[in-house]
Design a protein around this nucleic acid. Structure first.
Lengths: 235, 235
DNA sequence: CGCTTCTTTGAATTTCGTCAAAAGGCGTGG
DNA sequence: CCACGCCTTTTGACGAAATTCAAAGAAGCG
């Protein structure tokens, strides 16, 4: 966890949170940001923590996971570069609703409540951006609710893999590779199933040549067939 | 669908959307609101509609339901008195992400995009309120994702009933009654199960004296036992 | 090499959805 | 007032999908 002297004002320009702002605003935001470089598997915050800040990823990624009172866990989402997270808590009960853990070495920026509110007061567009970002996520989570309520495990896992490929995939000679390491358990926790079921499904797909999986590194070889599995209501 | 001459300025005071605003703001909002009285089973809007407005319920309630490309449907939430809905679409892609249908005769207020943005510009607190409301819903939906992914049908139905009681219940001599009519199918679509399973579960609870159900009218008699079912990881 | 973590696989069990059918309520119209 | 039809609810039987239980195999790391 090293402090960074660098002020990444232009990294901020890429973030939806600061979309539509004048350069001066980006500089103000950069000026009061706390920037940290974090090792893999570092906890940024825990569910229930009450010293909330607004966060954003510059490089790397984090896993946002929620556990219930019974200990059961789901992964809410993966956050990649240029995405914000942990911001909603500032406006509700000042407690993070989930845990955040780095997936790899990560460069993260964050702002205190006062700093963010101050920025929002000066640049109301930021508030609009927050509403739009949260609104999109609300719709995504609602889609997941529908999937969980109506689809079989295999389709859900297919959706998860495709979504991750879209969000954090890059093309290679072998197909689309997903940037960060993914355990079967992660897939299962996102798809809402067990790691056993996830393993069986992935093994099946690997045998069918749809994807490869070495070392927690997923590479999709046959996107269209996966799409068929994800979308096809029949069979 | 009758136009109302009445301007319900004080109805607005009860709404979280307008919390923390001066009376003059409420009057401005009331002045530009379109208020309608709607019959039961009326569609306010459909998923995909692109003439979006921000809505709020004064009396009655609506069911917000989403369908996937495969036709499968889930109920996203029920909206009761003093709650807003359909507002997120203004900030994202200008298309409603779900259908809204009245559960009973309903008094509804709505604002056009320009009116709401105008109000927000004059009273920035409204934007903060929107963020807080949407943030809360995001957390609720995330809770539902966790429930769907990790809990059995009975626990989920228990959660649904308790949530509805909190959201739209009022005390009577017999217990807590839920204001709007609820079919087994509604409960099932919200809990992510089938009406058959929901029926079996409800019948079981009714026999055990936890609640009564006449005429799509639910009354909870034993909240603590329901809470036990909802929370108890064991068994 | 031994330890830990992750993955695979098999078998038994369970939950829940599906299919099928009957019963109950309520309003309409004869 | 009764009969009919429509909608909702209840209930039983069955089967399939997925979790659970159990154990062994891989792979990375100190």
């Amino acid at each position: 966890m090293t402090r960074e002297a660098q002020i990444p004002s232009q990294s901020l320009a890429a973030m939806e949170l600061f979309r539509g702002l004048p350069p001066s605003a980006l500089e103000s935001a950069a000026a009061c940001a706390r920037v940290r470089r974090l090792p893999k598997d570092m906890r940024l915050f825990n569910q229930g923590d009450d010293s909330v800040r607004a966060h954003a990823i510059i490089e790397g990624g984090v896993r946002i996971a929620q556990s219930g009172s019974d200990g059961a866990q789901v992964v809410i989402r993966f956050i990649g570069p240029a995405e914000m997270f942990g911001t909603v808590a500032l406006f509700t009960d000042k407690r993070y609703p989930a845990d955040a853990i780095t997936l790899a070495e990560t460069l993260e920026a964050s702002w205190s409540e006062d700093e963010l509110l101050g920025l929002m007061a000066r640049y109301p567009q930021i508030a609009i951006n927050v509403i739009r970002i949260i609104g999109k996520r609300l719709q995504e989570v609602q889609d997941r609710v529908r999937e969980l309520a109506t689809q079989r495990a295999e389709r859900r896992v297919a959706h998860v893999v495709l979504r991750l490929a879209r969000q954090a995939g890059h093309s290679t000679v072998d197909g689309t590779a997903i940037e960060f390491p993914l355990r079967r358990k992660d897939l299962a926790d996102i798809a809402g199933t067990t790691l056993h079921t996830a393993s069986r499904i992935l093994t099946g797909w690997e045998k069918a040549g749809l994807l490869t999986s070495h070392n927690q590194q997923l590479t999709i070889r046959n996107t269209s067939e996966l799409l068929r599995i994800a979308e096809n209501a029949a069979d």
